[in-house]
């Protein structure tokens, strides 16, 4: 179980996250909704263990992020909005940076289910600089999944992707969640939230469970209301 308890993050004098709390069981998909600059990426960075919160606690299966940061981090896979890829190297070289598997083992691993769903094996020898945006995102996700994380954090995974890429990645996320993983997705794509067990609205650093809001309130209305509040 992933537990986020009263997390507060301050950047210089600005409070980015304010007493954020939520929890997710294994086999759950969590959606994060919010306007640009609402703190979604900061929350994901904090959950990944890359950013230390000013206050609050993070637990994964009772492992505290503050007390046992290394073990905690090992179980988290974080797919950032920007791809952490090295353009001059091939897709295979990029994958080998993040895993101890040999080239052959990698090739086999990627051509078998479930990773074969990402269709990465077909462009392993291609330099990243020649890959499309969708291919890069698939590669980025595959490089994270090679570490078999229990929690998958995805920051805008569908930005600038074509329909096929979106479909493939979504299929994989569903499979990942069904297999007992926890997925936390920050996105501006409305459709993705239909697949989430819980959707949270992040507004001015505070988190609100959208299920507690009045029924028939669309996500776009929620976002508009947060914009009005900010104004």
């Amino acid at each position: 179980m992933l537990e986020v308890k009263n997390i507060s993050v301050r950047y210089k004098k600005k409070i980015v996250l304010k007493d954020v709390s939520f929890s997710a069981d294994f086999g759950q998909c969590i959606g994060l909704l919010g306007i640009n600059g609402s703190g979604k990426s900061t929350l994901l960075s904090t959950i990944s263990g890359a950013l230390k919160p000013e206050s609050g606690e993070l637990f994964l299966n009772k492992i505290s992020a503050s007390e046992n940061r290394k073990d905690y981090r090992k179980e988290i896979g974080y797919v950032t909005q920007e791809n952490p890829l090295i353009p001059e190297l091939t897709a295979l070289d990029n994958l080998r940076l993040w895993t101890s598997l040999s080239g052959k083992e990698l090739g086999r691993c990627l051509s078998e289910p479930p990773l074969s769903m990402l269709n990465v094996a077909s462009f392993l020898k291609t330099p990243v600089s020649k890959l499309s945006g969708g291919m890069k995102k698939r590669l980025s996700i595959a490089s994270v999944l090679l570490g078999n994380p229990k929690v998958l954090l995805l920051d805008e995974p569908f930005a600038a992707l074509d329909l096929i890429a979106k479909h493939d990645i979504l299929d994989y996320i569903q499979y990942y969640v069904r297999s007992g993983g926890i997925a936390v997705i920050a996105s501006h794509e409305e459709t993705i939230f239909d697949y989430c067990h819980k959707v949270y609205l992040l507004n001015q650093g505070s988190l609100t469970d959208t299920s507690l809001l009045p029924e028939n309130t669309s996500y776009i209305d929620l976002l508009r209301s947060t914009l009005c509040e900010e104004a």
């Binding site: 960075s45 890359a50 290394k70 950032t80 952490p84 090295i86």
Partner: peptide, 15 residues
């Protein structure tokens, strides 16, 4: 200068 922010973040998560 060829590494982006995501690369450093990922490396940080790897320790």
């Amino acid at each position: 200068k060829g590494n982006n922010h995501a690369y450093y973040l990922r490396q940080k998560n790897c320790g």
